[in-house]
Write a protein that binds this DNA or RNA. Sequence first.
DNA 1: AAATTTATTCTTGTATACAAAAAAATTGAC
DNA 2: GTCAATTTTTTTGTATACAAGAATAAATTT
Lengths: 218, 218
Amino acid sequence: MEQKRADKIADALEGLIFDGTFADGTRLDEVQLAEQFSVSRTPVREALQRLAQFGLVEHLPRRGVFVRQPGPVELIEMFEVMAELESVCARLAASRITDKALAELQATNARCDLAVERQDPDEYYRENERFHAILYCQSGNAFLEQECHKLHRRLQPFRRTQLRLRGRLRQSMSEHEAVVSALEDGDGARAAEAIRAHVAVQGEKFHHLIASLKPAAE
Amino acid sequence: MEQKRADKIADALEGLIFDGTFADGTRLDEVQLAEQFSVSRTPVREALQRLAQFGLVEHLPRRGVFVRQPGPVELIEMFEVMAELESVCARLAASRITDKALAELQATNARCDLAVERQDPDEYYRENERFHAILYCQSGNAFLEQECHKLHRRLQPFRRTQLRLRGRLRQSMSEHEAVVSALEDGDGARAAEAIRAHVAVQGEKFHHLIASLKPAAE
DNA sequence: AAATTTATTCTTGTATACAAAAAAATTGAC
DNA sequence: GTCAATTTTTTTGTATACAAGAATAAATTT
């Protein structure tokens, strides 16, 4: 499991874009990054190409690569797709999920509950991730699972801010329970609707998401 | 819009993988491809990395890149996801589609009909592509549209063989009409179900798909 | 003769060198 | 002084050179 230098650079750059070090529209200079990472331009270029494929940067031929933060509209769209993908997972999982996975889902949810009691957002975050990962897996469709993980990862920085909303943790919990309940009953339609409502950006969440974007948009 | 050499090489390699010139498991030698395309290793490597991101080849560190044709299971999974994505498009389009787009959808379908009459599979193929493209666009979600196009493109070589099934063209046509009819009524659920049934691999299509894979699998 | 270890070769990953294109700057004209 | 044109400089894209790891072949040992 030897990771190439290019991979590590790509990960590092992804982090720097996520945490706002590189604002939207910033040009990423190859030679500058190269000496910053103490490597040649070659691995830097590889990393940038990977980021371009992931949509984090835009590569204009003969012009350079520029950070491409999603705007409000694109973000809403991505969350809509995420909601629909997870909805599909839930519907498929309703008939395909194993007893063991269902038990693990309940256990994960219980740990979420504990995290809410302890007011531990980080722990909640971890268990929440696990909850969704199980759902993806239990769709029984490995390709769908992969696609979900990709988009999930892409939306990660925006979802973290969402969890800081007052009372959001408890509400998120009850939404999880609705999903589990529907899965227990093998009710695909209900499970799909429950997870869609959980993931979709609507109501308060919408305003909070837009507000969190303001600094970067300026 | 000057296309880099690497882009052209990526496209060419994609074609060579699609048409079976490079069978599953084949190692793609950098220097060999480089002299074959009369370029250096650099653009070849860029092209290979792009193909790896698209999932057409697998890149084992320090080992090389190998053609990775999807097996039967993965193919079924991809078609399932495609069906669900298009289903989402249809559901969203039902409430978002413009009158003009609906008219164009009907016109496209009429041209499909003509192509069936003339027994012109190529013409049908083109108009069929257009039908789906309109649907993606009318979801009103540009991100979803992009994702649909990506997967659609990936599945292209496998879908072409499907259209050669006896009587498949006419059946495909009537399925299109069911989608349009539902969209005319603004019935999202019915439109979603219609397009899902249209795209999903089931019944005869399943056997034909598996059969078409046999040569490559050997 | 079989196996293990060592040496050689081959291939990938990285660095550097070069070429072409775009951006910037300087010079010239009005 | 401003605008345009040409030159300079910077930067990307490509080629080549080098280094390190993996596969293979050879040789020595058991």
